[in-house]
Design a protein around this nucleic acid. Structure first.
Lengths: 241, 241
DNA sequence: GTCTATAACGAGATAGAC
DNA sequence: GTCTATCTCGTTATAGAC
């Protein structure tokens, strides 16, 4: 009994993976807007109606791909942080920040279509469900975690906040405190600076992945590494003492 | 004779505009990937083959929309610079920098679909021709112009360049010198810093326009203004003396 | 010469009957 | 699950109106 159920479950997992793989291939070839359940079904050798046993709708398939992509960058960021712990001095928070940034960029360059799916233009007619929020925040959580550690070790000096931005800064800090584990609490100045750095980091990545650096930047790895380092310093992370 | 030609030319301009307007409407509704010549023709009351008198192919229509969009942001940036000249002290280069940044953001927020067309995910199967390069650089040219002025007035202190980035910085500066009028020459340190700030600026805009700030940033105008100001300072623009 | 309309092509998507 | 009839698409050839 259990073996049959186990085999069924295994088959279901395999077929689900095959469907998603084919969908990812179509993402690369035609873009998210043209992702079609029928074409995916044809390619995996199923009839379109059979696909609905795995994904109730085209949007659900899209959601699965989006969650997978967010999880993949998130995992890359988390892995980079874990790896860099061994390679950096405990007080070198800036080095870990840049290591995570570089990992995000490396993943994006290696998976441009999945990157476009999550950080590019919204897919027309698709609105992301709540399920994507968790995976979507993994990268930010890693960065916030680094800042939290630096804060505890007095390794960060957040920049001053203009008076006009003060309410927004406090709102964002309160939001973090509400959604995140207490270890990730940040003072308002650091919380806003973090959000700004976060979006600027992805600005660098998007310009490279989307081709805006063509004919402009050649040594993109060095360019990015320098910019990420400056972003970390800008947020207040102190260089290694 | 001339009146006939004038009438023809006028009609041609009007019809071309109507086609592009309808195409823009479809861009908003279905996305660039699904832009269809037939649907545009149907909507403007023509038969699809007649469209080929105005645009030799679907890609040429797309190219026209892309150029229009680049020209629109570019014009907004140029206008913002011209306007801010009257409103700012001659030595306040930073104020003009932020004015231009805010104008770019305002245009993007007002025209999200056209923004997505030029700064979002690349359109699958479409590759931009050379004609887009000029319009695409207008915003960057405005920013470079501000830096050039600041440089001439000793109003900018570019950040140091790490040794590893030095060759790339010099390459970029040489590229600027080759492509741009001499008034826009920048030293290597300022040229790389400019490119980094440029991409980070659009990172802020893209995150807002593409919805990444949902549930994160509320007062987006203030948030952006502060970040743009910090970007200008980061690049070395000095606050007003 | 400049334009629009008809018709057609090959490829692909789609809906529904079976 | 299969098949078929009916859509859409980009594009071209052609013929006629102005």
């Amino acid at each position: 009994m259990t073996s049959v159920q186990g085999a069924r479950a295994r088959a279901r997992i395999e077929i689900t993976a095959a469907i998603k793989d084919e969908a990812r291939a179509q993402l690369a070839a035609e873009g998210a807007a043209k992702l079609s359940l029928r074409a995916v079904a044809r390619e995996v050798g199923m009839v379109s109606s059979a696909l609905y046993r795995y994904f109730p709708s085209r949007d659900d398939l899209l959601t699965a791909l989006i969650i997978d992509a967010y999880d993949a960058v998130g995992a890359a960021a988390e892995q980079a942080l874990a790896d860099s712990r061994a390679a950096t001095a405990p007080d070198d928070h800036l080095a870990r920040w840049t290591a995570v940034c570089r990992a995000v960029r490396a993943w994006a360059v290696a998976h441009p279509h999945e990157y476009a799916l999550i950080y590019g233009s919204p897919v027309p007619g698709y609105s992301a469900p709540q399920d994507t929020i968790g995976p979507a925040s993994r990268v930010a959580l890693v960065l916030i975690g680094i800042l939290g550690e630096a804060l505890a070790a007095e390794g960060v000096a957040p920049p001053p906040v203009p008076a006009a931005l003060r309410p927004e800064a406090e709102r964002i800090a309160a939001e973090f405190a509400r959604d995140l584990p207490p270890a990730h609490d940040l003072p308002p100045a650091l919380a806003v600076a973090m959000v700004a750095a976060w979006s600027q980091l992805f600005g660098l990545v998007s310009f490279e992945v989307f081709g805006q650096f063509n004919r402009v930047v050649e040594d993109r790895e060095t360019f990015f590494a320098t910019a990420a380092d400056r972003l970390g310093r800008e947020i207040g992370l102190l260089a290694r003492s």
